[in-house]
Write a protein that binds this DNA or RNA. Structure first.
Lengths: 335, 335
DNA sequence: AATTAGCAATCAAAAATTATGAGTGCTAAT
DNA sequence: ATTAGCACTCATAATTTTTGATTGCTAATT
């Protein structure tokens, strides 16, 4: 890959991203300062290498999946944010009152709005949340609500129907005791402590201790499960992309725009790098899309943000946006 | 409208609902026991009355919006549920452990699944919820969480950042007092009581009482706002309907399948009847759809369920499903 | 050796043309 | 009041024609 070929591939990717039309040799003459014939020769080589392809013998070239990958890894140069993008995001961080999770959500909305892609965040309370309070409230003789609150302000609740042979007020009392013993425990350690330290104590005090124990167990278990929240912004933006130009492809992608599919896709992330780009087949979502994911972690909350766009995504811009955003989010808790 | 015309219109609507093809005079001969020429004559009359229309001079007839309305008001006969529909819904009500809101959600999923339409429920705690507990938890010096819990088990929480000149622990103390004074108050009366009975008392005890008062005010206000929850099932089912056979119409309807549009559409319901059918333009959603809404109200929760389908909805079936479902839901709290 | 001009060949996409057939409205007979 | 018969209509599908952008290759040029 000599310099001219790299420049040519970069030009093809970026032109195609802008125009969504196969790129012909003629249109590149000025940029590369040579004739269309030379470009055609070079294109033939790039095509042999698998970086570009054509729809039919007399069409211009479009980047292949491999071509996009090469572009992402070697050619693109994410720049600092430009005026408008920067400005819009800044308004969010100017507002100090915003909780982290709300700031993330607002960011997504703005990114979806600016780029016209779909964005998703899957977040959850980070494991360094400590139990601040477990509160059992009796609703009537056989119904109680358990409310769990952490020191970072995460709150979940779950309702329980309790068997007739147990008194709701007894659960409340046991709850007060359990609360005292667990306050300050990292939320990830609660189950452990509950089973080995607290269960034996409950066993001594209460008749049907298995049932009672299970209520506490479920309350915390539910916390861990439900404290994963998903937020989608610009859900149908993808449908507006010109690659979805026939009913079959639209319906195919449309049926993937459900929360469950997003959840599956976002949580499916490789360990290593915190910014990852999955192009086409690699996206595990749809062959026609690119997914860019980035993890974030603040004191109290962590998660992954994903931007889903067409393969001809504005890579440089989206990467810049994500980097800037996550930097600021993570900076927020230093305050 | 003589009997034969009614039968003809009924037949046209029901055939069109099944086949999605304009209905020609020939195909109706057997059903109506007369020749195609007679049917053509009758059709001409129905067309003049505005109940049916044709796409072009030599096509069969399709029901007009007015035709559907006439059908819904005068011709359809919702029957009892058939085997499969009944069976699936029954499994839900067999499970006594299910909370009302969960039962509603499950019902919707099943209805969307059975009918292939989109269904939405917009529910909220009913005004007969009583405050069971207001709990203020200090997270650190300038952050507290307010948790509101009602006797029916609805729980909401909101985080507050408090100014430096106020001590979080002071808020907690005031909270305990406010809690004692408000327990048992209907949630709809809380604001009133807060302003006229409690505000004066806070004013005497606390320096910066406006700020403190606002925290309590916001906590309850937030409760009323956020305790509206929306649930959508089969969001993209609509797109699969054959009326969406070109990219323009698909994209038009797709961009309406967002929560906000649903919320607006569902909450926009006329007072009177608890079952309402909005056809085409009346739907306030899309000219090509029919929306059937039904209100439900149980002890603790109330809301509206909406089924959104094409204008050629299976009216009889959907109405039966909705009626059965709401009957059972409302019956649940008598138990 | 690298670049370029020139030109026939290719083929998608758009436009124009031609068939097909389901269904109508009207008239006159039953 | 109902029906058979027939010319007429027009969407839809199938077919053909036109257009134009773009290529690959060859031979000339730098």
């Amino acid at each position: 890959m000599d310099e001219r070929k790299k420049a040519l591939l970069k030009e093809i990717v970026e032109t195609y991203v802008k125009t969504v039309k196969p790129v012909g040799s003629n249109s590149l003459c000025k940029k590369l300062k040579c004739s269309s014939a030379t470009i055609r020769n070079e294109m033939a080589v790039l095509e042999n290498l698998g970086y570009i392809e054509k729809n039919h013998i007399s069409s211009g070239r479009i980047p292949s999946e491999l071509g996009y990958k090469y572009y992402v890894e070697n050619l693109m140069q994410p720049k600092d944010l430009t005026g408008e993008d920067m400005l819009k995001l800044q308004t969010i961080f100017a507002n100090n009152e915003l909780k982290v999770s709300d700031a993330v959500t607002r960011c997504l909305e703005i990114i979806s709005d600016l780029t016209n892609y779909t964005s998703v965040v899957l977040g959850r309370g980070s494991s360094d949340n400590l139990l601040r309070q477990l509160n059992i409230i009796a609703l009537d003789l056989n119904k109680v609500v358990a409310i769990v609150c952490t020191d970072k302000g995460l709150v979940e609740n779950k309702e329980f129907i309790i068997p007739d042979n147990i008194d709701a007020n007894e659960i409340v009392k046991v709850g007060e005791m359990v609360n005292k013993m667990l306050v300050g425990t990292p939320i990830s350690k609660v189950s452990e402590k509950l089973e080995f330290e607290i269960k034996p104590i409950i066993a001594k005090k209460v008749k049907d201790y298995e049932t009672v124990y299970n209520i506490f167990y479920d309350a915390f278990n539910d916390f861990l499960i439900h404290n994963t929240n998903i937020h989608v912004s610009g859900r149908v933006n993808l449908l507006k992309e010109p690659e979805y130009d026939n009913t079959t492809s639209i319906k195919r992608i449309a049926s993937k725009l459900e929360d469950e599919a997003f959840k599956k896709m976002v949580s499916d992330i490789d360990g290593g790098e915190d910014l990852q780009i999955y192009i086409g087949k690699d996206s595990n979502f749809d062959d026609n899309v690119t997914v860019i994911k980035k993890k974030y972690k603040t004191d109290g909350e962590e998660g992954t943000i994903a931007i889903i766009g067409p393969k001809r995504m504005e890579y440089e811009r989206v990467v810049s946006l994500l980097n800037y955003m996550v930097d600021r989010i993570e900076g927020k808790d230093g305050k």
